[in-house]
Design a binder for these strands. Structure first.
Length: 421
DNA sequence: TCTGGGGTCCTAGGACCC
DNA sequence: TCTGGGGTCCTAGGACCC
């Protein structure tokens, strides 16, 4: 019987901020999405104040001021670096490891004795070496490990560590009956609602449901979730992350944008970011999608969504080629007179570099281009993103995002590095 | 005034083929 | 009178995740 543990960082982004600001210990913290739009992370103290996840910040701004909540813009350079460090430490405690998201990792623990002690030492190790508090959930399937992690978080008595094995079958049922079905991994809002009409309200109800009926009413994914709740392994540990099949780079603007040049500079920037991600996984894309849209929340504004896909003659990972295609797409979909909120580039039909089908009648791209890209990536890796970039990114910079409360990039920028007195 | 930015997988239905 | 059936591929849309 395999044994999985899910280890995740508590209120990860908020904990990253606190790791460098001991004065924030015990204080409520919220971290905002790009453009300071929504709340994406809350410390336990902030949750206790009743701040919900994903609410628009403007709705709670006053309340935050009244209660002295520390508010941060998202600082992905910091969170990404902290995540890497945390994953390395967690990986050292597992037999195999899957990095599932920025703040979650599955590890396998088959054959390790005295797991309660082991998991407790794991938590202490991560806290000491990275400064991030974590929870550990253990189960015989990934879904059960996820749910155990939920228990470890929700019930203070667990002290951040929980395994289903530690309870008798009777107590396991009692606990499952106290968990809402929507808290099970893979059961979202829509499926919860429908399950509710079928009389299935708790994790226990779902575990005991008829898989054939579930398959009929939903699909195989939900059927697998039921099996996993019953200890039948359907989801394997993915220790190597597969290449992305699509790459998106998009952003909302801090202020609405009407003119073509500003949009073009944003699209150029996103195209370059997307191409960079593509090169990181040694892939090339055949299709370049471009989208622009107005702000749907402003109901009295006239609305428009433009969307187009431009095929490339050769699959490419060249920033200039992809940007050129994206700008051609933008010219095709741009309509004057609208005020745009968001623009993005999507790369699809992605495959490994160098395995492209060749076209007899079209000359091959210049092989020296790949070297130019490699140099650009190396320079940008060493001296910071954007050190070398295409001129078209610089036409207008009137689209930058709002980041009013970003903390220093403590661990990745020399000029912002922490000083200890 | 102010509302994120990524991803994946599955299904149904239509086009098309033999 | 009677008008097949099996298969693949593609796309759009819907659901989920963090």
């Amino acid at each position: 019987m395999p044994l999985f543990a899910l280890v995740d960082g508590n209120s990860f982004y908020a904990s990253c901020e606190r790791a460098f600001r001991p004065d924030l210990i015990g204080r409520p913290i919220v971290v905002l999405s790009n453009n300071d739009g929504c709340v994406v992370a809350r410390s336990a103290e902030a949750k206790a104040l009743g701040i919900k996840g994903f609410v628009p910040f403007f709705e709670i701004r006053d309340m935050c001021e009244r209660h002295g909540v520390a508010v941060f813009s998202s600082n992905y350079a910091l969170y990404g670096d902290m995540s890497k460090r945390m994953m390395v430490v967690i990986g050292g405690w597992g037999i195999e490891q899957e990095v599932y998201s920025v703040d979650e990792s599955f590890i396998t623990l088959d054959g390790i004795p005295n797991l309660k002690d082991y998991a407790t030492r794991l938590r202490a190790d991560v806290l000491q070496r990275v400064g991030i508090p974590t929870c550990v959930g253990i189960g015989t399937t990934k879904t059960l490990a996820k749910l155990a992690n939920h228990v470890g978080k929700k019930f203070p008595k667990a002290e951040g560590v929980f395994s289903w094995d530690w309870l008798t079958a009777d107590w396991q049922d009692k606990l499952m009956a106290r968990i809402e079905v929507g808290d099970v991994w893979g059961i979202g809002r829509r499926i919860s609602e429908k399950l509710g009409t079928m009389g299935i309200h708790t994790a226990l109800d779902l575990q005991r449901s008829d898989p054939r009926e579930i398959k009929r009413s939903f699909n195989v994914v939900v059927e697998r979730t039921v099996a996993e709740l019953n200890g039948v392994n359907c989801l394997a540990l993915e220790d190597v992350s597969p290449d992305k099949q699509q790459i998106i780079a998009s952003r909302s603007f801090a202020e609405l944008v009407g003119d073509f040049d500003t949009l073009a500079s944003a699209i150029s920037h996103h195209a370059c970011r997307a191409a960079e991600k593509l090169r990181q996984q040694n892939s090339a894309a055949r299709m370049v999608g471009v989208s622009i849209c107005t702000n749907p929340f402003r109901e009295r504004d006239s609305q428009y969504t433009g969307w187009i896909v431009i095929p490339l003659v050769h699959p490419s990972a060249d920033s200039a080629v992809i940007t050129h295609a994206a700008l051609a797409g933008l010219r095709a979909i741009y309509r004057k007179g609208y005020r745009y909120k968001k623009a993005g580039v999507i790369l699809t039909e992605i495959g490994p570099q160098g395995l492209e089908q060749r076209d007899l009648f079209v000359p091959l791209p210049d092989p020296r281009r790949a070297k130019v890209m490699a140099v650009m990536d190396r320079v940008n890796a060493e001296f910071g993103r954007g050190t070398l970039r295409l001129a078209s990114e610089q036409l207008q910079r009137g689209w930058a995002m709002r980041q009013e409360q970003r903390s220093p990039r403590w661990t990745t920028h020399w000029e912002e590095i922490i000083t200890v007195r």
